[in-house]
Each structure stands twice: as C-alpha cells, then as structure tokens.
C-alpha cells in the first residue's frame, strides 16, 4: 500500500468481502488465495461472507462430479495463517434458507491461550456488518 516501500511496523485493518458462491465463477477461490498470500504481510485481517458468499462455507461440499478442486477444506487452514475472524451475515443466511448449522465448523488454535481451539466463524447482523466495513483501512471485494 505504501508507495515508498514496505513499512514493517505498519499494521492496517484489511477486510475481504465475499459475495459470490463458489465454483460457478473464480471469485471465491481467488479471494481465498489472496487472503492466504496477503497473510504473509501480518496485517489485521477479517473476512466477510454475505449474500451468495455464505455458500462458500456450507458444509458437505463434494466437487468430485464437476471436475473442480474442493477448496472448502482450505478455510480450515486459515487459522494456521493467523486469519481467525470470519464474519457471516445472519440475514444473508436466512434469505437463503440456511442457518449456522449448515456451515462448516471452522476453528483456529489460540497461541496466546495454550493453543485452545476456538471457532473462527462469527455471526453478525446486517448493521454489525456495515459497522465492520466502516472499521477498516482497506476493503477488498470479491
């Protein structure tokens, strides 16, 4: 982000916004790869799932019949990359007939709490999602 070179001590708040279902377009996979690559820069990262983006986290995905890699398993690696805040919008779930029980269980191990396993997914309502967006330095939309 800095024109005059990388500044190691600058920590910005980054939000990745996911609004597309997986597999039909490349957006979901591209977003996930950017999150993984961007994690190397040790910024304060949050990932938002709203609208059709919530389908990315639905459990029981099986892509064996469509000849594409099932990257849903990779969301569970995000914790290893210190990406531990996945915000899912309640209204988007409800509009699609989904509940939190339809989502994968995604966890991270908290290094500061004796590696206790904690849930990465946090359900928020639309107003909270708007507030989350307003709390960022950089928003990248997919």
């Amino acid at each position: 982000m800095e024109e005059d070179g990388y500044q190691g001590d600058v920590c910005k708040r980054f939000l990745y916004v996911n609004r597309r279902a997986p597999y039909g377009t490349i957006y979901a996979l591209e977003s996930l790869e950017v999150v993984l690559i961007g994690a190397a820069f040790e910024q304060d990262v949050s990932v938002a799932f709203l609208d059709d983006g919530v389908y990315q986290l639905v459990k029981g995905q099986d892509t064996s019949g469509i000849g594409m890699k099932n990257f849903s398993a990779t969301y569970n690696a995000l914790g290893d990359y210190e990406v531990t805040k996945l915000f899912v919008e309640k209204e988007s779930l409800a509009e699609r007939g989904l509940t939190a029980d339809d989502l994968m269980e995604i966890t991270y191990e908290d290094e500061d709490d004796d590696w206790a396993e904690k849930p990465s997914i946090r359900l928020v309502d639309r107003a909270e999602m708007a507030a989350l967006m307003a709390d960022q330095d950089v928003i990248l939309s997919f």
């Binding site: 993984l36 994690a39 990257f71 398993a73 990779t74 569970n76 690696a77 290893d80 590696w115």
Partner: peptide
C-alpha cells in the same frame, strides 16, 4: 490431504513445531 493446500514456510515451521 486435510487442507488442499501446501503450507507457506512460516506455517510449515509452526505446524512442525507443534
């Protein structure tokens, strides 16, 4: 097998350590 990605080096180091 578990995550469908090859981990970045710092992730590998951390996971090996554990």
């Amino acid at each position: 097998d578990e995550y469908q990605i090859a981990p970045a080096i710092r992730v590998l180091v951390k996971a090996m350590k554990k």
